[in-house]
Design a protein around this nucleic acid. Structure first.
Length: 524
DNA sequence: GTCGAGTTGTTTGT
DNA sequence: ACAAACAACTCGAC
């Protein structure tokens, strides 16, 4: 590699990390730089309705708009380019005589493959490449190194590895008020060529419905607001949250979409929490505390980055091989909010409209689709979440789906969420259900979670005939949940026998083992 | 090999 | 409000 020039022309490539605060890679880009070019590349690989829903795409575009105005305020700009990064970047680094390329480390599958190619091409062109870790608290490799060379698969193991590393790196200092300018004679840097498009510019016709707005400015304001109630922060325990809370605001911080895109730095969140905990001596602790939530993110990022085939069941060494059913009619009903269980359908409706639901609500629908009721593969549900969530983050999403389907991390498959009583205990009046499923808005509270039990007269008075205005349940939870538990046991036993065939012969159940349970699960 | 723990279950009792 | 029964998993420490 050539020696880096004294006054480099730097290209900073934004991908995640859509922020100016705590951005060590951007610091590396501006160091001694004569010129700085900040770009975001709209990659056609992402920009497909089957890959990213309108709510998250809009969140991204708002984040870019915010970033653009922040950069302009510092005498720079964000140039939004379109096309495959491996084609677009070499073109501009040639046009702009770039000598240094900087970007934040991204551990996700597609990003890793992409970045290896870009880095090789840049070095080939004599360009210095600098890449820092700032999307996670730690370098995930360091966590693995402290855990016997592999990603920890339990929270305890993760905690041990993390404690061995000590506290994470401090946040980077604020950037200077003025950033190195672009050379005004550079090709293709005019506003008209590099502006942030709208969702309709990108071919999306669906309306944006999420109430959450993207961007670093919004993220910092939300962080400040959420952490201003120090008593609340200090006593926060995730399992005690109310998944039905939505008006005026949910039971959690909703910082997840900002962390997903890096509008907020995890290290800034970490430091801000530590400040509150210093003041409030009595406070909740990981894994249930707010800090714990940030550590779970780290846990899943580490697992994803260091597990082969993490995003699929097949050839995934940490994933139980459960023979899920292929029942597209069940899957479609779940996806389209018509399982006939209001609690499940309301959560799925919130997913479509807001792109966000409370974590425990996600548990309920994930359990229902997989091991609890429909026995459909977690990969199918994962794809839906991946597309529709504004915080859809592959490492965390696939991990949680394996957790909920008892495919990895969590194995107590007999603990099944009830699609009837779970919501009822938080919201007996059914306000949440009524809001997201207006067809049921006048159903008496007594029947709001089980409307099929309402007498015909009650249904008529509520203007909601079951089977007409709102579907009848596609399965009988009391029946199928028991069958599912039995099938999970069978699958676990088969896995054990398969993994270690010499230790014990394949177990055969005395009775019931060969029952065609699939047939029994069909809609009645 | 045993035993306790595991961010977030449900139902039925008192 | 809290406790036991339900049926019973894996992992990791010892």
């Amino acid at each position: 590699m050539k020696t880096a020039p004294a006054s480099p022309n730097s290209l900073f490539w934004f991908r995640k990390g859509l922020r100016l605060h705590d951005n060590p890679s951007l610091w590396a880009a501006i160091k001694d730089a004569k010129h700085l070019y900040a770009v975001f590349v709209l990659d056609p690989w992402f920009l497909k309705p089957e890959r990213v829903g309108v709510n998250r795409l809009n969140f991204l575009l708002q984040s870019l708009t915010d970033l653009r105005s922040s950069l302009k305020a510092r005498g720079s700009n964000l140039l939004v380019l379109r096309g495959k990064p491996e084609e677009v970047l070499p073109k501009v680094w040639k046009d702009w005589k770039i000598t240094r390329l900087c970007f934040e480390v991204d551990t996700e599958e597609y990003a890793k493959e992409r970045d290896v190619k870009i880095e090789a091409a840049a070095k080939e062109a004599g360009i210095e490449v600098i890449s820092c870790v700032s999307h996670t608290l730690y370098n995930t490799e360091d966590i693995c190194a402290k855990s016997g060379g592999h990603a920890p698969l339990s929270y305890k193991g993760f905690e041990k590895a993390m404690n061995a590393l000590g506290p994470p790196a401090r946040t980077a200092p604020d950037l200077p008020a003025k950033l190195p300018p672009m050379d005004p004679s550079s090709k293709g840097i005019a506003d008209k060529d590099t502006d942030v498009p709208s969702v309709s510019d990108l071919g999306y016709i669906e309306a944006v419905r999420t109430p959450f707005k993207g961007g670093e400015t919004e993220a910092l304001a939300r962080l400040a607001e959420q952490l201003s109630d120090k008593g609340w922060v200090a006593q926060f325990e995730k399992p005690k949250g109310d998944p039905t809370a939505f008006d005026p605001s949910p039971a959690t911080t909703v910082l997840s979409p900002y962390l997903k895109f890096g509008c907020i730095s995890p290290r800034l969140f970490y430091e801000s929490l530590q400040q509150v905990y210093m003041e409030k001596k009595e406070h909740s602790k990981p894994p249930v505390s707010l800090l714990g939530q940030l550590l779970w993110r780290e846990f899943y990022y580490t697992a994803a980055a260091h597990t082969p085939n993490y995003h699929q069941k097949e050839d995934n060494p940490i994933c139980k091989q459960i023979p899920w059913d292929d029942t597209p009619e069940f899957f479609k009903a779940w996806e389209d909010c018509r399982t006939g269980y209001p609690w499940i359908d309301a959560i799925m409706r919130q997913l479509h409209e807001w792109g966000w639901m409370h974590h425990l609500a996600r548990h309920c629908v994930a359990c229902f689709l997989t091991r609890g009721d429909l026995y459909v593969s977690w990969e199918k549900g994962r794809d839906v979440f991946d597309r529709l969530l504004i915080d859809g983050d592959p490492s965390i999403n696939s991990g949680n789906w394996m957790w909920l389907s008892a495919s990895s991390f969590f194995y107590q498959y007999f603990r099944v969420y009830s699609p009837i009583t779970y919501g009822k205990k938080y919201d007996p009046e059914g306000k949440y259900v009524r809001h997201f499923l207006p067809a049921l808005k006048d159903m008496p509270a007594k029947y709001i979670y089980e409307p099929w039990k309402a007498p015909k007269k009650v249904q008529e008075e509520a203007n909601c005939i079951i089977g007409v205005d709102y579907p009848a349940p596609i399965v009988d939870h009391a029946v199928v949940s028991k069958q599912c538990i039995a099938r999970m046991k069978q699958a676990y036993d088969a896995e054990k026998a398969g993994q270690n065939p010499s230790a014990s012969p394949p177990k055969r159940k005395a009775t019931g083992g060969e029952k065609p349970l699939t047939k029994m699960l069909k809609p009645t």
